[in-house]
Structure formats: structure tokens, C-alpha cells
Nucleic acid binder design. Structure first.
Lengths: 232, 232
DNA sequence: GTGAAATGTTACAGATATGTGACCAGGGCG
DNA sequence: CGCCCTGGTCACATATCTGTAACATTTCAC
């Protein structure tokens, strides 16, 4: 079960092109989502959580490159593989495209076969090193590969959101984050959620971690929360 | 909070709608400015410098979209976040609205709650985090990033106000400040609080710092207080 | 030394912020 | 279609903070 069932978001303003790509990918066993602009794309990213993005360079409104940068900037979506699509003759943009965080770059026109091949390649090395490393703090282990949390060798049952929250905290220890920042980083920006919702998830996470580790997540009164091994 | 006191300019030609929005925002702690046409709006932008704009799509005279474009074109106002409001059934305008530089788009009718939520989200993204360096004096460390105070590697537990007070002192060492100045600087102007309240917080801060560092905060009799490494 | 003024300390009640459990809506799934 | 899981929100319980007043102590001028 490597690529089967992977969800790919296609972002292009021209419907026929989207359609063509979608057909090609579906034949290859992928599931496709489509968006014709950055706003729709972002919504889809937030609530569908695709496994990768095919992103057209030229888009109405925010350009593709802007969008890519933005995705990379936010913790919640930074690891999302992106392939940039670009019209012919824009070779010079390649560097800029890759700089913006895209994982590959395909000039139009391309054959469906080539597209699928490169997409596979990108997905294969999708999880870049660093992200897949397990993090351990005081007997609390987060294993991104198994997508699993262990406390003193006992599995901890956390929901998806709590998992992301914990992952964010463990990769950003010591620093205090406001509810706002957490919403941006863990939920992904442009999601309209009450700040207090963060409290609830913090609570759920603490509960899941149990007595042994809940004190790792500290309340910074008047500010937000912090993950720290040092006592407060 | 970060959002407290932010000023929002509401541009809509219908007074009742402006009023409704204003009430909702004021309850949420924002300050509201109102304009019923683009000319007034522009004046207000220029001399009131609001933190963001709620802009109705349909306006007498220059359309909202024109106005948005113009603001984005001008250097001084290019960064001003804009949320477009539009009557229902104008979904097709969404793209155009966002193209013109709006940061979000809310179709009428909308609930006050949604409005506030999206406004928060936009404002949140627009406010870049400031640079924050840790300050160290005689083994006393204030770390704004972790939002934490350490005295000789031991965490010091201070309340929000004491934290701000200490931060102010550590960034303004050696100089004496009157109670009234401290109220302005630490509490923020236009708050009606007894001057003696400062004494109480000074006391709390000293207590929190403990014997090892309390002498850093010196009383300047007849004047106020001073943070100094030199003995008095 | 004495008394008035300034500052230190403490206690407390109201205001705020956070913790917590429950509920409800939407989506996936059999 | 109905069940279960998840996530977001609300309402209420706690915990913590804050400003004040009241009283204690220090300082200083005389």
C-alpha cells in the first residue's frame, strides 16, 4: 500500500487541464481533489489534508509560488510535497519555484506518464529526513513513522489533532506559544476557530499523556502554553 | 491581548449594517471607525490609520473593489488587511475580490461570530512577531521567547503584570521611574489605577525574585523606583 | 525624639483566565 | 440509515491575578 489511495490536490485555473491530470492520476490509482484558485485550495488542504499538491505556477489572485511559500511556512502543512507546474518557456522560474519550497518542477507540456512518474518519485521520498525521526523527552516518545506516541513503553491514545499538537510542541520545546500561534501552526492558518478550542485540545492531550507527562505541557498564564522539561 | 484595542474601519453605505457590525466588534474588544463611502474611508485611513478594513463590495461612487486595489497599490497602505463583504449570490465575485488584494471575503449574510472569527484570523496573520532577545543581569534571566524568568537557573514564578514590570525594568535599567510613568509604560496609558498599586506589584515582584535579586529593584524615595545593578 | 509623609506588607473580594465535562454537528463507514 | 469518531463550542468549576484599603514600618525635617 504505497501510493494506492494517496490523495492529490490539483490546483489549476483551467478546468480542462485539471480534468486531464485528474484522469491520468485516477488511472494510476490516486484520488484527486481539484481547486481553481488558492483560496479553495487552502480550504481543501485544511479540511481534506491531501498527501500532495500539484500546483500551477500562474493562478488568479495569489500566485502559485506565494501559496507554496505559505504552505511551507506553516507547521501544519510544511511537509506537504508540492510539484509545481509551469507553462513552457518559463524555465527561468525553475529555481525560484524550487526555492519557494516545491519538491519538483514540471514544465508544460508534459505527458501523463511523466507526470505520474515524477509524482511517484516525490511521494516516495515524501517524508524528508528529520521529520521521521522519533523524538524522546523524559520517556515520552513520539514516533512520526508509526504515527504513534508512547509513554514509558505504553502506547498513548491521542486523536489526530492532539497528535499534531504534541508533535508541534515536541519539535518546538521551551518556547511559549499563544493560542493564536498554535491555531496558525497546528491547525493551519485561515481556519476560523475559537481560541478557547486550543484549551480544550490541550486538556485532551494532557489527559492522554497522563500524570507522568502532563506537566510537560505548561500553562503560561495570560499568554498561552509551552512544552518544557524544566519545572515551571 | 494582541487584538485588544485594534482599530477596524467599517465601510458600508447602509448605516444599520455598519451599526450592527460595530456593535459586534466592540463587544469583541475592537475599536470601530465608520465610513459610508470611499472618500470618507480614505480620509479615515489616512489620519486614523486603522489596523484593518471591512469593506463592502457595493458602494456608491467608487466601488469597494476599486478602493481595495487603490489601497494595495499605495505603499503606505499596501499592508493594511482588508476583508470584503458582499451580498449573497455574488459568489462569482469572490475571485475578483481576492484578486483585488482583499485578505478574506465574507458573503452576506454572516453571523457576528463568524465575522469576528475571520477578522481575528486575518489580523493574526498580519501581525508579524517582533524580535525578542533574552536579557541577563547578575544571573537573573528574562527570556521573552519562552516567556519565562530564571534566577540562577531556577524558574521564577511571576504573574503577568510582574512579568511586564520586570521586562520593562530590565530593558530600561539604571533610570528611575515615577509610579505614574510605570503605570503608563507597564499598564498602558489610559487606565485608571491608584498609584499605590504600583507599590504592591513592586512588592510582589521583589518577593518573587527572592533575596538574591530583590535588591535590583531599588526604591527612589519621593520619586519612584529604579532597576539597577549598582547598590544604592 | 516626634510627627507627618512615604513606602512596605498583608488581606481580601471582585475580575479574569484557565480547567473541565458535556453536548452537538458533520463525516466516514458498515 | 444509524453508529462511532472527531472536533468545536458552551457552560460551569477552579485557579490565579489585580486593585484597594488598612495597617505597619521606615524616613526625614524640625
Amino acid at each position: 500500500m504505497t501510493n494506492a489511495g494517496k490523495r492529490v490536490l490539483i490546483v489549476d485555473d483551467e478546468a480542462p487541464i485539471r480534468e486531464m491530470i485528474a484522469v491520468a492520476l485516477e488511472m494510476a490509482g490516486y484520488e484527486c481533489l481539484e481547486a481553481e484558485n488558492v483560496q479553495d485550495a487552502h480550504s481543501l488542504v485544511v479540511d481534506q489534508r491531501p498527501d500532495m499538491i500539484l500546483l500551477d505556477w500562474m493562478l488568479p489572485g495569489t500566485s502559485g509560488i506565494e501559496f507554496a511559500r505559505r504552505l511551507k511556512r506553516e507547521e501544519a502543512t510544511a511537509e506537504l510535497p508540492i510539484i509545481m507546474l509551469t507553462a513552457k518557456g518559463e524555465e527561468e522560474n525553475k529555481v525560484q519555484g524550487l526555492e519557494s519550497g516545491a519538491d519538483d518542477y514540471i514544465p508544460k507540456p508534459f505527458s501523463p506518464r511523466e507526470l505520474v512518474a515524477r509524482l511517484k518519485a516525490v511521494l516516495r521520498r515524501a517524508t524528508p529526513p528529520g521529520v521521521e525521526e522519533t523524538i524522546e523527552v523524559n520517556g515520552l516518545i513520539l514516533d512520526p513513522v508509526c504515527h504513534r506516541v508512547m509513554a514509558h513503553d505504553k502506547a498513548v491514545d491521542v486523536g489526530p489533532t492532539e497528535y499534531r499538537l504534541l508533535q508541534f510542541f515536541m519539535t518546538h520545546q521551551e518556547r511559549a506559544y499563544s493560542r493564536s500561534q498554535l491555531l496558525d501552526q497546528v491547525w493551519g492558518g485561515n481556519v476560523y476557530v475559537e481560541e478557547r478550542t486550543v484549551d480544550v485540545h490541550i486538556r485532551r492531550l494532557r489527559k492522554a499523556l497522563g500524570q507522568s507527562h502532563e506537566q510537560l505541557i505548561q500553562t503560561v498564564r495570560g499568554t498561552g502554553y509551552r512544552f518544557s522539561t524544566k519545572a515551571s
